[in-house]
């Protein structure tokens, strides 16, 4: 086939390719909905940090967490080192619970 015929043929075919590009099938609403639904059900849950990292962030970083750990350890020591025996009315007057909600939270862990 001579070159001019090749070019002519390519130009004629291009009209058809152009027409195909101009008429793509539009996806139906049902297809789009099915694809979106599949994305929702197949989507991994947002990544969660490990428990320790979440605790660290909740308390404002490692120094705060270390302080909390120290305070907790001190609380345990004070609790276990108290002298045995009943506390008299005079001593009981000095026992003031300054943070009852904290004591309640910690009660579960110890």
């Amino acid at each position: 086939m001579p070159m001019s015929d090749d070019k002519h043929e390519a130009a004629r075919l291009e009209l058809f390719f152009e027409a195909a590009r101009a008429h793509p099938p539009e996806p139906s609403a049902a297809l789009m909905a099915a694809v979106l639904r599949a994305a929702e059900t197949g989507q991994p849950a947002p990544r969660r940090e490990p428990l320790l990292a979440r605790l660290r962030d909740a308390f404002g970083g490692w120094p705060a967490l270390a302080g909390l750990a120290t305070a907790a350890a001190a609380g345990v020591w004070i609790g276990t080192a108290l002298p045995e025996g009943t506390i008299g009315a005079a001593e009981a007057g000095y026992l003031v619970d300054v943070a009852p909600e904290l004591a309640f939270d910690l009660a579960g862990d110890f």
Binding site: P25, E26, P27, L31, L36, A39, P44, R47
Partner: peptide, 21 residues
């Protein structure tokens, strides 16, 4: 999308589904 971004899923759906179809 893999990190859990639902909006990315929507954008990919509207961008790619017509092409694939």
């Amino acid at each position: 999308f893999a990190a859990g971004d639902a909006a990315a899923a929507r954008r990919l759906t509207f961008r790619l589904t017509p092409r694939v179809l």
